[in-house]
Design a protein around this nucleic acid. Structure first.
Lengths: 99, 99
DNA sequence: CAGTGGTATAGCATTGTTGCTATGCCCTGG
DNA sequence: CCAGGGCATAGCAACAATGCTATACCACTG
Protein backbone atom coordinates (compact mmCIF):
# COMPACT_ATOMS: atom_id res chain seq x y z
CA UNK A 1 0.00 0.00 0.00
CA UNK A 2 1.58 3.24 -1.06
CA UNK A 3 1.61 6.35 1.05
CA UNK A 4 -0.25 8.41 -1.44
CA UNK A 5 -1.96 10.38 1.24
CA UNK A 6 -1.15 12.73 4.02
CA UNK A 7 -3.27 10.97 6.62
CA UNK A 8 -0.63 8.66 7.91
CA UNK A 9 1.31 11.71 8.99
CA UNK A 10 -1.75 13.09 10.74
CA UNK A 11 -2.20 9.87 12.63
CA UNK A 12 1.44 9.71 13.56
CA UNK A 13 1.24 13.19 14.97
CA UNK A 14 -1.75 12.25 17.07
CA UNK A 15 0.02 9.18 18.37
CA UNK A 16 3.11 11.14 19.31
CA UNK A 17 1.12 13.77 21.17
CA UNK A 18 -1.02 11.57 23.36
CA UNK A 19 -0.17 8.19 24.72
CA UNK A 20 0.35 6.32 21.46
CA UNK A 21 -1.53 3.15 22.34
CA UNK A 22 -4.98 4.68 22.70
CA UNK A 23 -4.70 6.87 19.63
CA UNK A 24 -3.24 3.98 17.71
CA UNK A 25 -6.19 1.78 18.60
CA UNK A 26 -8.58 4.49 17.55
CA UNK A 27 -6.86 4.78 14.19
CA UNK A 28 -6.96 1.04 13.70
CA UNK A 29 -10.63 0.94 14.66
CA UNK A 30 -11.27 3.69 12.14
CA UNK A 31 -9.49 1.69 9.49
CA UNK A 32 -11.42 -1.48 10.21
CA UNK A 33 -14.76 0.29 10.30
CA UNK A 34 -13.94 1.86 6.98
CA UNK A 35 -13.19 -1.50 5.50
CA UNK A 36 -16.38 -2.94 6.91
CA UNK A 37 -18.45 -0.20 5.39
CA UNK A 38 -16.71 -0.56 2.06
CA UNK A 39 -17.49 -4.27 2.04
CA UNK A 40 -21.12 -3.71 2.90
CA UNK A 41 -21.40 -1.03 0.27
CA UNK A 42 -19.81 -3.09 -2.47
CA UNK A 43 -21.84 -6.11 -1.51
CA UNK A 44 -24.88 -4.00 -2.29
CA UNK A 45 -23.36 -2.82 -5.52
CA UNK A 46 -23.55 0.80 -4.47
CA UNK A 47 -21.22 3.56 -5.45
CA UNK A 48 -19.79 5.92 -2.87
CA UNK A 49 -22.11 8.58 -4.20
CA UNK A 50 -25.15 6.40 -3.68
CA UNK A 51 -24.17 5.52 -0.15
CA UNK A 52 -23.41 9.17 0.49
CA UNK A 53 -26.85 10.22 -0.59
CA UNK A 54 -28.52 7.43 1.37
CA UNK A 55 -26.69 8.40 4.53
CA UNK A 56 -26.82 12.14 4.18
CA UNK A 57 -23.17 12.63 3.39
CA UNK A 58 -21.14 13.58 0.37
CA UNK A 59 -19.06 11.26 -1.75
CA UNK A 60 -15.87 12.83 -0.45
CA UNK A 61 -16.88 12.16 3.14
CA UNK A 62 -17.57 8.53 2.32
CA UNK A 63 -14.21 8.17 0.59
CA UNK A 64 -12.42 9.76 3.52
CA UNK A 65 -14.19 7.50 5.93
CA UNK A 66 -13.60 4.30 3.98
CA UNK A 67 -9.91 5.09 3.74
CA UNK A 68 -9.72 5.49 7.49
CA UNK A 69 -8.73 9.10 7.05
CA UNK A 70 -10.41 10.22 10.25
CA UNK A 71 -11.81 8.54 13.33
CA UNK A 72 -15.54 8.55 12.67
CA UNK A 73 -18.06 9.89 15.15
CA UNK A 74 -20.99 7.88 16.43
CA UNK A 75 -23.64 9.95 14.62
CA UNK A 76 -21.92 9.25 11.32
CA UNK A 77 -21.64 5.55 12.09
CA UNK A 78 -25.33 5.44 12.92
CA UNK A 79 -26.30 7.10 9.68
CA UNK A 80 -24.12 4.74 7.68
CA UNK A 81 -25.54 1.76 9.47
CA UNK A 82 -29.07 2.94 8.81
CA UNK A 83 -28.33 3.51 5.13
CA UNK A 84 -26.75 0.07 4.80
CA UNK A 85 -29.60 -1.51 6.70
CA UNK A 86 -27.41 -2.97 9.39
CA UNK A 87 -27.39 -2.19 13.09
CA UNK A 88 -24.54 -0.45 14.82
CA UNK A 89 -23.25 -2.14 17.92
CA UNK A 90 -21.21 -0.16 20.44
CA UNK A 91 -20.62 -1.79 23.78
CA UNK A 92 -18.18 -2.69 26.50
CA UNK A 93 -17.29 -6.32 26.92
CA UNK A 94 -15.66 -7.91 29.94
CA UNK A 95 -12.22 -9.18 29.04
CA UNK A 96 -12.59 -12.43 30.95
CA UNK A 97 -16.02 -13.60 29.86
CA UNK A 98 -18.07 -14.04 26.73
CA UNK A 99 -20.92 -11.83 25.51
CA UNK B 1 -35.99 12.68 35.24
CA UNK B 2 -35.48 16.28 36.10
CA UNK B 3 -34.28 18.76 33.56
CA UNK B 4 -31.64 20.23 35.76
CA UNK B 5 -29.30 20.65 32.86
CA UNK B 6 -29.06 22.48 29.61
CA UNK B 7 -28.05 19.46 27.58
CA UNK B 8 -31.52 18.33 26.70
CA UNK B 9 -31.99 21.60 24.89
CA UNK B 10 -28.76 21.05 23.02
CA UNK B 11 -29.89 17.63 21.94
CA UNK B 12 -33.26 18.94 20.92
CA UNK B 13 -31.62 21.54 18.75
CA UNK B 14 -29.51 18.91 17.08
CA UNK B 15 -32.54 16.76 16.43
CA UNK B 16 -34.48 19.64 14.95
CA UNK B 17 -31.69 20.60 12.61
CA UNK B 18 -30.88 17.26 11.10
CA UNK B 19 -33.20 14.38 10.53
CA UNK B 20 -34.27 13.73 14.13
CA UNK B 21 -33.98 9.97 14.10
CA UNK B 22 -30.23 9.67 13.59
CA UNK B 23 -29.35 12.38 16.08
CA UNK B 24 -31.82 10.93 18.51
CA UNK B 25 -30.22 7.53 18.26
CA UNK B 26 -26.81 9.02 18.82
CA UNK B 27 -28.04 10.79 21.93
CA UNK B 28 -29.59 7.61 23.23
CA UNK B 29 -26.42 5.69 22.52
CA UNK B 30 -24.47 8.34 24.40
CA UNK B 31 -26.83 8.00 27.32
CA UNK B 32 -26.56 4.23 27.45
CA UNK B 33 -22.80 4.25 27.14
CA UNK B 34 -22.67 6.73 29.96
CA UNK B 35 -24.77 4.50 32.13
CA UNK B 36 -22.64 1.49 31.26
CA UNK B 37 -19.48 3.29 32.26
CA UNK B 38 -21.04 4.50 35.47
CA UNK B 39 -21.99 0.98 36.37
CA UNK B 40 -18.54 -0.37 35.63
CA UNK B 41 -16.98 2.44 37.59
CA UNK B 42 -19.19 2.00 40.63
CA UNK B 43 -18.76 -1.73 40.50
CA UNK B 44 -15.08 -1.10 40.97
CA UNK B 45 -15.75 1.35 43.75
CA UNK B 46 -14.03 4.15 41.92
CA UNK B 47 -14.84 7.83 42.12
CA UNK B 48 -15.18 9.90 38.98
CA UNK B 49 -11.84 11.48 39.80
CA UNK B 50 -10.14 8.12 39.99
CA UNK B 51 -11.55 6.98 36.69
CA UNK B 52 -10.64 10.32 35.19
CA UNK B 53 -7.05 9.94 36.21
CA UNK B 54 -6.89 6.35 35.04
CA UNK B 55 -8.23 7.25 31.62
CA UNK B 56 -6.44 10.52 31.13
CA UNK B 57 -9.47 12.74 31.55
CA UNK B 58 -10.69 15.18 34.14
CA UNK B 59 -13.49 14.59 36.61
CA UNK B 60 -15.68 17.07 34.79
CA UNK B 61 -15.26 15.22 31.51
CA UNK B 62 -16.22 11.96 33.17
CA UNK B 63 -19.28 13.53 34.74
CA UNK B 64 -20.32 15.04 31.44
CA UNK B 65 -19.87 11.73 29.71
CA UNK B 66 -21.73 9.66 32.30
CA UNK B 67 -24.64 12.06 32.12
CA UNK B 68 -24.83 11.63 28.37
CA UNK B 69 -24.07 15.30 27.95
CA UNK B 70 -22.20 14.79 24.71
CA UNK B 71 -21.86 12.03 22.17
CA UNK B 72 -18.48 10.53 23.02
CA UNK B 73 -15.77 9.98 20.44
CA UNK B 74 -14.13 6.64 19.82
CA UNK B 75 -10.75 7.65 21.25
CA UNK B 76 -12.43 8.56 24.52
CA UNK B 77 -14.38 5.34 24.60
CA UNK B 78 -11.18 3.38 24.04
CA UNK B 79 -9.40 5.12 26.87
CA UNK B 80 -12.32 4.53 29.23
CA UNK B 81 -12.48 0.89 28.23
CA UNK B 82 -8.76 0.48 28.84
CA UNK B 83 -9.00 2.16 32.23
CA UNK B 84 -11.93 -0.04 33.23
CA UNK B 85 -10.19 -3.12 31.90
CA UNK B 86 -12.93 -4.01 29.47
CA UNK B 87 -12.79 -4.15 25.71
CA UNK B 88 -14.64 -1.76 23.46
CA UNK B 89 -16.72 -3.36 20.76
CA UNK B 90 -17.79 -1.32 17.74
CA UNK B 91 -19.23 -3.22 14.84
CA UNK B 92 -21.97 -3.51 12.27
CA UNK B 93 -24.40 -6.34 12.61
CA UNK B 94 -26.73 -7.66 9.92
CA UNK B 95 -30.33 -7.02 10.85
CA UNK B 96 -31.55 -10.37 9.59
CA UNK B 97 -28.95 -12.75 10.97
CA UNK B 98 -27.09 -13.45 14.14
CA UNK B 99 -23.48 -12.54 14.92
C1' DC C 1 -10.19 10.78 -28.81
C1' DA C 2 -13.77 12.94 -26.13
C1' DG C 3 -17.11 11.80 -22.55
C1' DT C 4 -18.67 9.60 -18.40
C1' DG C 5 -18.77 7.22 -13.97
C1' DG C 6 -16.29 6.00 -9.85
C1' DT C 7 -12.88 7.13 -6.56
C1' DA C 8 -9.16 9.86 -4.07
C1' DT C 9 -7.55 14.44 -2.31
C1' DA C 10 -7.38 19.15 -1.16
C1' DG C 11 -8.88 23.30 1.32
C1' DC C 12 -11.89 25.77 3.98
C1' DA C 13 -15.99 26.91 6.96
C1' DT C 14 -18.82 25.02 10.43
C1' DT C 15 -19.83 22.40 14.28
C1' DG C 16 -19.14 19.72 18.22
C1' DT C 17 -16.26 17.25 21.63
C1' DT C 18 -12.66 17.40 24.81
C1' DG C 19 -9.40 19.62 28.27
C1' DC C 20 -9.25 22.58 31.99
C1' DT C 21 -10.44 25.60 35.79
C1' DA C 22 -13.64 27.11 38.98
C1' DT C 23 -17.72 26.74 41.43
C1' DG C 24 -22.08 25.04 43.64
C1' DC C 25 -24.77 21.45 45.92
C1' DC C 26 -25.29 17.40 48.96
C1' DC C 27 -23.90 14.46 52.43
C1' DT C 28 -21.07 12.78 56.09
C1' DG C 29 -17.73 13.15 59.86
C1' DG C 30 -15.37 15.76 63.21
C1' DC D 1 -20.96 24.48 62.64
C1' DC D 2 -17.32 23.72 59.60
C1' DA D 3 -14.33 20.88 56.53
C1' DG D 4 -13.88 17.59 52.91
C1' DG D 5 -15.23 14.20 49.40
C1' DG D 6 -18.00 13.23 45.47
C1' DC D 7 -20.69 14.77 41.77
C1' DA D 8 -22.84 18.32 38.46
C1' DT D 9 -22.28 22.57 35.63
C1' DA D 10 -20.45 26.51 33.48
C1' DG D 11 -17.36 28.88 30.29
C1' DC D 12 -13.74 29.06 27.35
C1' DA D 13 -9.64 27.63 24.46
C1' DA D 14 -7.94 24.11 21.50
C1' DC D 15 -8.56 20.55 18.51
C1' DA D 16 -10.70 17.31 15.29
C1' DA D 17 -14.46 15.52 12.42
C1' DT D 18 -17.90 16.65 9.10
C1' DG D 19 -19.99 19.29 5.06
C1' DC D 20 -19.03 21.04 0.80
C1' DT D 21 -16.88 22.35 -3.56
C1' DA D 22 -13.57 21.55 -6.88
C1' DT D 23 -10.29 18.77 -9.01
C1' DA D 24 -7.30 14.87 -10.58
C1' DC D 25 -6.76 10.11 -11.95
C1' DC D 26 -8.36 5.81 -13.96
C1' DA D 27 -11.04 2.61 -16.51
C1' DC D 28 -14.37 2.02 -19.90
C1' DT D 29 -17.08 3.17 -23.92
C1' DG D 30 -19.01 5.32 -27.95
Amino acid sequence: MGDRTDWSAMRDRRMAESGAAEAYDAARLAFELGRAVRELRERRGWSQSQLAQASGMTQSAVARFEAGGTVPTLPVLERLAAALDVSLNVSFKPRDAAA
